[in-house]
Simulated scan of single mutants.
Amino acid sequence: MSDDNLNSGSPIFEPFEIGNTTSLPGRRTRIEIPLARLPSETWLSLPIEVLHGTEPGPTVWLSAAIHGDELNGVEIIRQTLERIDVKRLAGVLIAVPVVNVFGFINQSRYLPDRRDLNRSFPGSAKGSLAARVAHIFMSEVVTRCEFGIDLHTGSNHRTNLPQIRGDMRDPRNRVRAEAFGVPVLIHSETRDGSLREACRKRGIPVLVYEAGEPLRFDDAAIELGVEGTLRVLATLRMLDTSPCNDRHAPREVSDSTWVRARRGGIFRLRVGLGQHVGKRQPLGVIANAFGDQPMSATAPFDGIVIGHTNNPLVNQGDALIHLARIASE
């Protein structure tokens, strides 16, 4: 019942050990892996739930809140776990709803040392706080898996159209990305220090789901994320059923760019997520509080809006609208 492209040789019917805790077939096991002590002497731990199936299959992880203020993924994982019957699961599913516990508590993208966790992989047991968290996540979760789904939102007051990012040249990733059912697929190269780059070096494919904005629940993005995750797990043959996909086939992005502010002022957005725009079409206007001396932000090419700022106060050079060119157009 396992995916032919994934390693199903691991002893799924044997107890599965993680964080010095044993998970038995047919059961859900909650685990907390200590991360570090706070100045108050209180321990912070990495929360994990392991769903150990009753049939052979791959080992897959779900992760969210690598950036501590990106909350949609936390709720996506909760709702996904609610809908899975572990007695009918093939393989092992490792769910980590809050990776950056420090940022999550402080409602911040970063860790207390102002480091970006997604630029700190694969980490180090003796490095910075961010490097230590990255090391624990890699060693305890990622390296035990054959595939992962990492859940994100936009950053810095920006919102994203639901999209999947990953290596679309990998036929395994492309099949799973298409199954997710988002409006657009983006082939993106990895960045040094990112989770995807650390996984690439280990030959572990991963998809990144981006949707919504920080510090907000977006119900539509969450619903799509839950259904998309379940469809991917069904594609891996971990589930015997999946939500029906009545959405249009996703469109692939060939390239994208941020339209930036040519002056500072108050930005009044004139387009929405998913909207198709034409070259030189006005996307919004920057002016002062009275609307004087308006300056338009215009599209550099025909494309689709996949992200935009929600903060109307902008400085010269700020990112305003993320515009993507569709590959078939």
Rank of each mutant, 00 (worst) to 15 (best):
F104K: 03
Y110P: 08
R83S: 10
E82H: 14
S63D: 12
I84H: 09
S63R: 09
D85S: 12
T54W: 07
E70N: 10
E55Y: 12
T59P: 14
V74M: 06
A95F: 00
N72Y: 12
P56C: 05
H67L: 08
E75G: 01
F104C: 01
G57F: 07
I84C: 06
R109K: 10
L111N: 02
F102K: 04
A64H: 09
R114L: 08
D113R: 13
T59E: 09
L93M: 07
V50G: 06
R88V: 00
P97T: 04
V98C: 12
R83Y: 05
N100V: 02
V92M: 05
P112K: 03
A64D: 10
I105Y: 14
T59S: 15
L89E: 04
V60G: 14
I84S: 06
A64W: 09
T59L: 04
E55F: 14
E70D: 11
P58F: 04
I76C: 13
H67R: 11
G53L: 02
L111I: 01
E82A: 14
K87A: 15
L89A: 03
I94D: 13
E82F: 13
I66G: 10
I94K: 15
V99T: 03
G68Q: 03
R109W: 04
V98H: 08
I66A: 11
F104Q: 02
E55R: 15
A95Y: 02
V50K: 05
R78Y: 06
R78I: 01
G73L: 00
L89W: 00
L81R: 10
R88K: 15
L89R: 04
L93E: 06
P112S: 08
D113W: 08
E55A: 15
V50C: 10
D69S: 08
D113L: 10
I77A: 09
V50H: 07
P97A: 05
L89C: 07
F102M: 10
I48P: 15
F102W: 08
V74I: 05
V99P: 12
